[in-house]
Simulated assay, not measured.
Amino acid sequence: MILKLSGLRAAGLGAAMLFAVPAMAAECIAPADPGGGWDFTCREVGRLLSAEGLVEGNVQVTNMPGGVGAVAFANVAGKRADDGDLLVATSTVGITQIAQGKYPGGVDQMRWLAMLGADVGVIAVAKDSDIQTLDDLLGRLKADPTSVVTSGSSGAGGWDHIRLLLLAEAGGVEALEQIRWVQFDGGSPAVTQMMGGQVGLVSTDLGEIKGFVESGDIRVLAVLSDEPISAFPDLPTAKSQGYEVTGYNWRGFYTGGGVSDDDYNAWVEKLKTLYDSAAWQETARASGLEPIWRGGDEFNDYVAEQNEQMANISREIGVIQ
């Protein structure tokens, strides 16, 4: 027997079914395979946004590798520019790629939400090096850019290289393209080679060589941060020595360029609330990140400035024309 629902009952059932549909969950695109820094950023921030009650339900994480972030960038620009539920993880590495023309568009195609933490760059020499201070290093490079063999874990034109060049430029070194650079597969191998005398200096993230700092096998000439870092407050910053240079490999997010002001501001507010939470502060430090906040318009301006700096340096050393 087939029962026919009355119009009232049918309407009521339809309404019940409508209200049973959950709200669309937020999504975070990690522009890389699982296991890397961008994947960590999406998964940990997504987990905490949910745990702190800042979003409904769980944050869906979508891995979209390719082109060091270029594939995800193109996808958002072309298909999801106005999706107010979307976050995309990025970092200083992504801005370097954009500055060097390796993405299908510039920084103005996206809205930059916030950075929540960073690996902090350091410039270090072996403990027995005759380079005693940052002034000593920059004086030598200014007199002869080829006098010190420098190294890090990125290739020429990568972030480890560029932040050293920004510091050299601030120190008055003119022929930046003459500074000798050697790439190693990570900060730790670079330090090992430096201790063996193959290179004279390492530019890398502090987190990668923390053990060497603790053991006293290396001398840190400068930490590239605004303020002394919490784990090693006695290490001198470049700024404290008169050089206005920072070298953060920050972790943060952008969203599509067509996202409304209301959705954009709501994300900035949620991310700031998360940043201020004890849960994020503990998670960041446990993962080797220094909690650092820049959000909203301040972060947009910071990204634009960083993009311009990297493009200028990249032209100067011939990475781009």
Results as ranks from 00 to 15, higher is better:
118 A>I: 05
97 Q>W: 15
102 K>T: 02
157 G>A: 08
128 D>E: 12
138 L>D: 10
105 G>P: 03
162 I>M: 06
175 A>M: 14
148 V>F: 15
143 A>L: 10
141 L>D: 03
132 Q>H: 05
172 G>N: 12
134 L>D: 08
130 D>H: 04
124 A>T: 08
145 P>Y: 09
129 S>R: 04
122 V>D: 03
129 S>N: 11
168 A>Q: 05
163 R>H: 12
170 A>P: 04
135 D>S: 11
156 A>W: 11
175 A>R: 13
127 K>Y: 12
123 I>V: 12
105 G>F: 15
109 Q>T: 11
146 T>D: 12
158 G>R: 04
139 G>F: 07
103 Y>K: 00
160 D>N: 09
110 M>Y: 13
116 L>Q: 07
123 I>H: 03
128 D>P: 03
96 T>P: 00
158 G>P: 00
152 G>M: 11
138 L>G: 05
152 G>K: 02
158 G>Y: 15
170 A>H: 06
130 D>F: 05
134 L>R: 03
143 A>F: 12
148 V>W: 15
153 S>P: 00
126 A>C: 08
124 A>L: 01
110 M>K: 04
147 S>Q: 07
146 T>W: 15
174 E>H: 12
96 T>H: 14
101 G>A: 07
142 K>V: 02
122 V>Q: 01
145 P>G: 09
149 V>F: 13
166 L>R: 08
124 A>W: 02
126 A>W: 02
158 G>I: 11
117 G>E: 08
129 S>M: 13
